[in-house]
Write a protein that binds this DNA or RNA. Structure first.
Lengths: 211, 211
DNA sequence: CCTTGTGAATCGTTTCACAGCC
DNA sequence: GGCTGTGAAACGATTCACAAGG
């Protein structure tokens, strides 16, 4: 298979969200054009995105909503569950631990860890904060695939090194720091400061930020 | 000025972060190559990104760290402060309200709002949660530029309509919903579910997710 | 000799346009 | 007739490569 652009994967995720809404409304079939307007893109883009993975529609008719949901789920890897550990039980870690959106999409939080003794043992929804010393043992035992980092920027790299050494193969980084991961590990970063700064640029340069 | 790609703005924000680290370490001068390796890009990319805004270096020498920090701050619109309102005082809204990264970069949180009477009046760090009924009045009075949305997906569009009608010109959307903004309003979305799904795709298709 | 700034070349993504099929 | 799937064209971003300046 040829390499797939991140932008394509991101759109597939959005298509999936809309398809689920359409399904909930009882719509059985949908055209690439309908899917496109709901998401602010073009019908050609929708068809091209899907074409990388096969052909899912019927010419003259469109796509079967339920089938396409299944196909995109399969493409994105949502036909199975994934186990997640959250590292850092500060404000953001705690908020994420209780975020319902994880579970409803097949991401199971199997552990949350902190270094601060005051936090260890406290309950966040279903789950109890454990000592950061147990990270390695738990990862080796429970084999989660994904680590969500919610630690201070200064320790982010050290923590990523620990979890990837222990066997984590995907990292979602909320820490305000750029981190390196070894080959074979997928990494994504969500950086609040950067998002705000892009907004500030947009405010400062009306009409000049592309898109 | 020609339109600037979002990817360029995002990199400028990262360069700024590294330049600040270099400055803290007392480094006076830096080459595009040094800036590039710290950020995983190329020296040509660094120079091209900067070239859209002027010429900031000295041939044979590189860039003065302090000057370049000032120039990038100016470019990004960080030479002034921006006022922010947070809509929704649930877990994520509350976490953001207390996020130190806002203030240290010149983003002042001037209000946080919720609909739930149990939350109204509670203190989050410095600031007290106010009724969502005061949103319009406060926006007209305090003239914040940025709204950060931390409300449930179902009400996100209605809330965006309210704040943009009241005069907000930039929105950072953490609600798990696609929203439309009127022309002239900058919008960015951070969608946890999408980020996780991109990771799941990466886990499911090793070697096939571009970069 | 080193490093910037930048046009030109390359690469990747999006859009177009139409043949093929329902 | 309507809509998909897909090569080809257009566009945009990144990389190359070098002239110009310290």
């Amino acid at each position: 298979m040829k390499p797939i652009a991140e932008s394509t994967v991101r759109r597939l995720s959005l298509y999936l969200r809309f398809l689920e809404e359409f399904e909930a409304q009882g719509q059985l079939t949908i055209s690439s054009g309908e899917l496109a307007v709901s998401r602010g893109t073009t019908s050609a883009q929708v068809r091209k995105d899907l074409s990388f993975f096969g052909s899912f529609g019927k010419r003259g008719l469109g796509y079967d909503v339920r089938d396409l949901i299944g196909s995109i789920r399969q493409i994105l890897g949502l036909h199975r569950t994934w186990s997640v550990v959250i590292i850092g039980a500060g404000k953001i870690g705690a908020a994420l631990a209780q975020y319902r959106g994880f579970a409803t999409r097949g991401f199971h939080v199997v552990g949350i860890y902190d270094k601060d003794p005051a936090r260890i043992g406290t309950k966040l929804g279903e789950i109890t904060v454990r000592s950061d010393l147990e990270i390695e043992r738990d990862i080796e035992r429970l084999r989660p695939q994904i680590a969500v980092l919610c630690v201070p920027g200064e320790v982010a790299q050290a923590v990523v090194d620990r979890v990837t050494d222990a066997g984590i193969t995907a990292v979602l980084n909320f820490a305000p720091a750029q981190v390196q991961v070894p080959n074979g590990v997928t990494m994504r970063a969500v950086n609040m400061a950067t998002e705000l700064e892009i907004l500030a640029f947009g405010l400062s340069h009306p009409e000049e930020l592309a898109s």
